[in-house]
Design a protein around this nucleic acid. Structure first.
Length: 287
DNA sequence: ACCTCCCTGGCC
DNA sequence: GGCCAGGGAGGT
């Protein structure tokens, strides 16, 4: 047995983790009414225009739908309000009975009719919650997101238009939520590895063939992440709402595999810092 | 288009 | 005791 790999510290909820969370919550919460709301950490409300609004806006509303755009989870509430949750770096949502002890760093608790609680646990507090009217929502960063990488992945020609003339590294552009919404550091590295594209390449320098490969790679990477329930690292910062761990970590091809052999060409995967972010890639087969 | 900051647990 | 991880906002 090889020693267990030491994964880089943070789990990072990205599109597959948020979508897995959404799918797990949807059948439980949609159609149910919110009876009580507690916010234990004021920082969670830093994106709410008036902090006092959040609890009042949620209470007694019914959750009519649960959607996702990029990494944002949006519960549509009765009365035309949107409850927005972003998991940040270390956030996760939990379904729990009120009888079960709260975990440390449980910053928001939303209780539903019947007693079930949706709990937002976030040690590093990069996540947040907010309740917006339609007008307010139109002014948030949610309204400035690019197309969703899973549900609305643009055709190759649209990607070519979006990237034309861009000189920033393709990795940075994949992380730019205004270009494409949903990829974070793990899945950006995975997609570039699958596509065989060097993360440093200026975005505008990719030819049509490369863009086709990259588009397919994004699709395949997200589908694989979803299929395995997302990526839970050793710290288990990310877990599904029912407590299960995502299993994609065992299937990562680049991220976290420094000095290990590339699964495609055998060259060692290297780690370097690109735009202040860890980047794992293969010098042998990513060009 | 780029850099800095926020925040905390885990590791050296 | 200090450093590192990073999504997104804000500033330059």
């Amino acid at each position: 047995m090889p020693p267990p790999r030491r994964w880089p510290q943070p789990a990072m909820p990205e599109l597959p983790e948020v979508e897995t969370t959404r799918r797990c919550l949807e059948p439980i919460v949609v159609g149910r009414c919110i009876t009580a709301v507690e916010v234990g950490h004021p920082r969670m409300l830093r994106r709410q225009l008036r902090a006092g609004d959040f609890e009042a806006r949620l209470r007694r509303r019914t959750i009519e739908g649960l959607r996702r755009h990029g990494k944002f989870l949006v519960a549509e509430l009765s009365g035309d309000l949107s409850w927005v949750t972003h998991l940040g770096m270390s956030g996760r949502l939990q379904l729990a009975s009120p009888r079960v002890d709260r975990e440390p760093h449980t910053h928001v608790v939303v209780r539903l009719v019947g007693g079930t609680e949706i709990r937002f646990v976030d040690p590093r507090t990069f996540g947040f919650v907010a309740a917006y009217t339609p007008d307010e929502l139109a002014e948030t960063s949610l309204a400035r997101l690019g197309p969703d990488a899973l549900d609305s992945l643009p055709p190759t020609r649209s990607l070519a238009t979006a990237l034309a003339g861009r000189t920033a590294p393709i990795k940075a552009l994949l992380l730019d939520q205004g270009v494409l919404a949903g990829l974070g550091n793990i899945y950006a590295d995975e997609a570039l590895h699958r596509a065989g594209v060097d993360p440093h390449r200026p975005g505008g320098s990719l030819d049509v063939e490369e863009l086709k490969r990259l588009r397919s790679a994004v699709k395949a990477t997200l589908a694989a992440g979803l299929r395995w329930g997302g990526t839970s690292l050793d710290d288990l910062a990310y877990l599904l709402p029912d407590g299960r761990a995502g299993e994609y970590v065992e299937r990562l091809r680049a991220y976290g595999r420094e000095d290990e052999a590339c699964l495609r060409c055998g060259a060692p995967i290297v780690r370097e810092v690109l735009r202040q972010r860890s980047t794992y890639w293969c010098r042998g087969c990513q060009r």
